[in-house]
Write a protein that binds this DNA or RNA. Structure first.
Length: 648
RNA sequence: GCUGUUGUAGCUCAGUGGUAGAGCACUUCCUUGGUAAGGAAGAGGUCGGCAGUUCAAUCCUGCCUAACAGCUCCA
């Protein structure tokens, strides 16, 4: 007999060789029908796999992350089976589960597949799913495995087999399809009730652009139709919130082919929003000792040779521009730090001056590959809410923690309550892509880990994600519909001070090297606003709304009173406009609602005579009449409340 | 950058080997209407750009460009 420990701590006794499916059945039939996989001693297994010794067991159902992965991985096999039956001779790369669904990379051998074909594949999958085919696991010796895929002519699987040791190779078979796979899988295809193939894309074999490009088909499946419907509804919602769509509709920003791709043009409403944000952060920063500086948009190429950026990114940057007479080379600045280093050097620094915190909303230009450009989240010209903190080594930890406080304050103020922090460290194998001494890297990495721990951040560590000059702490926020975005960043840098030979005079009158911290709570104004738009679906909080109040006269007769109101509200620091078109009130309301203006004031005979306003709130409707003063006070009160704790 | 898809009026989109259409927006006029689209008329396009095939190209072919999806990249 063996002892099985369940998550609640209870221990049950079973015969050796009992499978987790059997155990599930022994608990309840209902549970058995829902179990997709099992976590045995922390490892995910097929439910049919016999357990031969004492173990801890967690039965995994759909709501478990690992169960979903297993489910989607099995779905990838199902899709492969469908593809093989529809397109004989098709070869398979890899078919893993991903965050939402799965994909399979396939080589169609010169054939192409269209969106219409996907429907056929989908139908075939549904048909095969209904057959309730069992996923059968089989240990296969390496030579047999090689023989199988040689016979099949699948060079990709053979390529994969090369990296696998004999004795560790398993095949899974369901229906008529056999695949090289380490598993695990769900019990049978019948669990897959709802299937949707999402899209087709190209992907290089093993992600290397020198290799052949395979066709990648993305799909998602669910154990019930209802869940698929919900997922598709979520996608619809995401589409509605897409900042590119809302940015156009709400007249926030635009792009012009003539100006150039990746170069956003901020329209008046977008600029208003952006300036509100900038002012908000700038005030917060001044309060905690930051000093605003301003530097030009270009800098001598020598500046970037010194910084190391030329060597590292020179060939991927916009080409230098030259002076006509002397041929002197200048770069569009790809970052602000070298300029700030020179500001540091503009005068001798004493330990008493440190930390020196230089802040600039600095616009930078980076050549991003054409295929990378995406709305406001990836552009070629953008403004960083940048600052560089020059401090003594012993101040790093405290400064770093203060920055974390600032970042969290910014997130909270803007409604991002769910965030995670990623500590990005050096690649442990390949250190050639980084500059700077091992010793300084070790110190910097430790400082970040300590600061994050001291602030109680929940963090994940990613190796190989560091910048070339230093480790980072990146903040990822989760938006209203669950998508993750990288925003703020904090980076420790021992390298630039070295390259720029920055110094300060210490208390013992020796010259010492300061440490730099780069940080940007928003990251970039562009990306942050993109995420903000999607998070609030364009319904900005009142303090940020480009236009706060639209005044809607019932007819032309009340335009004068409406204009007077605009002046009164503006005097009260409220952003107001009039809609003086000769349209009916219903039309004016509709148009204003569509523009997501927080407040509408309906003005007619009654309001003019009584010197009141009829308040209508966006998305809520008629709120009744108020005196002008009462309304202005309400607006200012709400803004004040929203700004509470915010440094205004 | 790579693969695929797309590019028609300010916006959303029909359409055809014989030099183009809708709705909304816009302009003017009528309407002065009380909480999500009042009516009429008008104006607006070298059908993304450049070549080629053709008697004839917005439509077919090639190249370029931009957007979209994904890959790769991101100081």
């Amino acid at each position: 007999m063996i002892h099985i420990t369940l998550p609640d701590g209870s221990v049950r006794e079973y015969a050796a060789g009992t499978s987790s499916a059997d155990i599930a059945r022994s608990i309840s039939e209902g549970l058995a029908r829902k179990v997709l996989a099992a976590e045995v001693n922390g490892e995910v297994w097929d439910t049919s796999r016999p357990i031969n010794s004492n173990a801890t067991l967690k039965l995994l159902t759909w709501d478990d992350k690992n169960a979903k992965s297993t489910f989607w991985h099995s779905s990838a096999h199902l899709m492969a089976e469908a593809l093989e039956s529809l397109y004989p001779g098709v070869k398979f790369g890899i078919g893993p589960p991903i965050e939402n669904g799965y994909y399979y990379d396939i080589d169609l051998g010169g054939r192409t597949i269209s969106d219409e074909d996907l429907k056929k594949v989908e139908d075939k999958m549904k048909e095969l799913a209904k057959a309730n085919n069992v996923y059968k696991r089989e240990d296969v010796p390496k030579d047999k495995a090689i023989a199988y895929f040689t016979e099949k002519g699948d060079e990709y699987k053979l390529d994969l087999l090369e990296g696998l040791a004999d004795g560790s190779i398993t095949f899974y078979t369901q229906g008529g399809f056999t695949d090289l796979c380490r598993g695990p899988h769900i019990p049978n295809t019948g669990f897959i009730k709802a299937i949707k193939l999402m899209n087709i894309a190209g992907a290089y074999w093993r992600g290397n652009e020198n290799n052949k490009m395979l066709t990648r088909i993305y799909g998602i499946t669910f154990p019930a139709q209802k869940e698929l419907d919900e997922y598709l509804a979520l996608l619809e919602e995401a589409k509605k919130r897409d900042h590119r769509k809302l940015g156009k509709e709400l007249e926030l920003f635009t792009f012009s082919e003539k100006v150039g791709s990746g170069l956003p043009l901020w329209l008046p409403k977008g600029a208003m929003l952006r300036e509100r944000l900038q002012q908000f952060l700038q005030r917060a920063q001044i309060e905690i000792g930051y000093l605003p500086v301003i530097t030009p948009h270009i800098g001598s190429k020598q500046l970037y040779v010194t910084s190391g950026h030329w060597e590292k990114y020179g060939k991927d940057s916009f080409r230098p521009i030259t002076t006509p007479q002397e041929g002197e080379e200048f770069m569009l600045k790809p970052m602000n730090c070298p300029h700030h280093c020179e500001i540091y050097k503009s005068s001798p620094r004493s330990y008493k001056d440190l930390p020196l915190r230089l802040a600039e909303f600095g616009t930078v230009y980076r050549y991003e590959q054409s295929g990378e450009l995406h709305g406001l989240t990836r552009v070629r010209g953008f403004t960083q809410d940048d600052a560089h903190l020059f401090c003594m080594p012993e101040q790093v930890l405290e400064e770093f923690m203060k920055v974390i406080d600032l970042v969290l304050y910014v997130f909270e103020s803007l409604g991002f309550s769910e965030y995670t922090a990623q500590i990005s460290l050096r690649d442990q194998e390949d250190r050639s892509k980084y500059i700077g001494s091992d010793e300084n890297w070790a110190i910097a990495e430790q400082a970040i880990i300590d600061a994050a721990a001291a602030k109680g951040l929940k963090t994940v560590i990613e190796y190989g994600e560091a910048a070339f000059y230093g480790p980072k702490l990146d903040f990822m926020v989760r938006d209203a519909i669950g998508r993750k975005w990288q925003l703020g960043t904090i980076q420790v840098d021992y390298n630039l001070p070295e390259r720029f030979e920055l110094e300060y005079v210490a208390s013992d009158n020796t010259r010492k090297r300061p440490v730099m911290i780069h940080r940007a709570p928003f990251g970039s104004m562009e990306r942050f606003i993109a995420v903000l738009i999607e998070n609030c679906a364009g319904n900005f909080p009142l303090w940020l709304a480009p236009l706060q109040v639209k005044i809607l006269p019932i007819s032309d007769k009340y335009n004068d009173y409406a204009l007077e109101l605009v002046q009164l509200l503006k005097a009260a620091d409220i952003r107001a406009e009039i809609d003086d078109r000769s349209e009916k009130i219903g039309r004016k309301i509709r148009d204003t609602e569509m523009m997501k203006v927080p407040y509408m004031l309906v003005i007619g005979e009654k309001e003019m005579n009584e010197r009141t306003v009829s308040v209508r709130k966006h998305g809520e409707g008629d709120k009744g009449a108020l005196s002008i003063e009462a309304f202005a006070n309400e607006i200012n009160g709400i803004v004040k409340e929203q700004m509470k704790g915010k440094k205004k």
